[in-house]
């Protein structure tokens, strides 16, 4: 779990295995490497509607793998500004590049103060290591 690829520095993490990256005023959200590995082959993503309002740690979308379905929670309260529509035809992007091309949504209008409820890479890796 110590490799940078598994939980890059500079991102914020939830204990439910979402990551957040602040980029150009938006919060980019995705699933961590740990999450995609646990889910196995991802075959479908039910993305939220653009302009949907989400609450911190409220349900945001659903990811389906060959094995199971997983709720994805919004790491921050805000408005869905953009969804990764490439996932509709290529959900496997999450398995292949969970911190890059496999991002899920971009949130706008979020509250910076809520970032305090999230973990940095070190704390997230620590949590994953304890869970093993």
């Amino acid at each position: 779990m110590s490799e940078a690829k598994k939980a890059p520095e500079g991102l914020y993490y939830t204990k439910e295995h979402e990551w957040v990256k602040l980029e150009g005023g938006l919060a980019v959200v995705g699933l961590t490497d740990f999450a995609q590995d646990q889910l196995g082959d991802i075959t479908y993503v039910e993305l939220p509607e653009v302009e949907a309002e989400v609450e911190q740690m409220g349900e945001m979308c659903v990811v389906e793998s060959v094995k199971t379905a997983a709720d994805v929670y919004a790491p921050l309260s805000g408005t869905v500004a953009e969804v990764n529509s490439a996932l509709e035809d290529a959900p496997e992007l999450i398995n292949q590049d969970c911190y890059g091309a496999g991002w899920l949504v971009k949130l706008s209008g979020f509250d910076q103060a809520e970032l305090d409820n999230l973990m940095d890479a070190g704390a997230y890796v620590q949590l994953m290591t304890e869970g093993e």
């Binding site: 196995g40 082959d41 075959t43 060959v66 496997e92 398995n95």
Partner: peptide, 10 residues
């Protein structure tokens, strides 16, 4: 094996 490196879809 459930799958190999490239996954079930591939």
């Amino acid at each position: 094996p459930v799958s190999y490196g490239d996954g079930v879809i591939a």
